[in-house]
Amino acid sequence: MVTLVPAGPDPAGPDSTASGPTGPGGGSARGRRPGTGRLAALLVSPTLLVLGLVVLYPIISAVRLAFYQRNDGIDPETGLLVQGDRFVGIDNFTDMFTGENADRFLNALTNTTTFTVVAVSIEVVVGVLMALVMHRAFRGRALVRAAILVPWAVPTAIAGLLWRWVFQADGVANDLLPGAPVLWTTDGVQAWFAVVIADTWKTAPFIGLLVLAGLQVISAEIYEAARLDGAGPWRTFFSITLPLVKPTLLVAVLFRTLDTLRMFDLPYTLIGPGKEATDTVTVLAFEEAVKFGKYGPASAYAVVLFVYVALVAFAFVRLLGADVFGTKGRRSR
């Protein structure tokens, strides 16, 4: 739904220092020749056009759809449907919160939120541990790195099916666990856990990968200095590694959060649609649109989710200072 669009090169750009090594070199543009701005706009326009087509247009059209509903009267003689759409104002939105679908929607919104909070928290811990392991120099490191990254490379829908096998009534999970078999793929809290477990397996490597990149730029001298000062491994981790890797980690967490808010494949393939414990807002929107042909309410779901995701992203950038665009450069801390 939401796409983070890096702000295109600003036509009046030379004042805003770009990131990277070329950053401070904008001085020459101070006394630029007339027409440069127009040329820049011209050069950028194809990009803007494409972005408008693939980002702006779908968003506007989805928002428009959210205010319509399909006519569904049936001709009593022939049984044919009345064609066309009708404008219903904000009905689709009020239905969501007070209508007959309110329970389903609010439940889906709760699932979406709990999945995000819990799964991303676990993924951060596991992901950082993975990064620390991958960062160590030891024999077979390449193998471990590759092994950790495999889940990330598996398409999510396939992963959902794989885990369905693991979690089926006489599957591996129940063989390993003591006691009566757990019916993972039925409705209930166990289904919710199954999704969290599969999601963690699938995406902790992503956080691991990004954090690994962050770890690799921390200079060894700092660790050396810490060791000389007598810091133990815990102290080193919390006072040096974590603060220095924090900017990367925040971006990773932001990406994962936005991703998990739109979670669809795993609940859909692993548990199946229509289950109270695992239906997310996207599953609901998909069912409404594709299965029931009700594009209006489906768009309304999508729009609400879009706003929700946008708010979360905004909060991340503002409150936690996630440096998504890399525009801050290297501020000394």
Binding site: G73, D75, E77, T78, L80, L81, V82, Q83
Partner: peptide, 8 residues
């Protein structure tokens, strides 16, 4: 007036 489509 009902706006129903013509029978096929």
């Amino acid at each position: 007036d009902s706006g129903s489509p013509a029978p096929p």
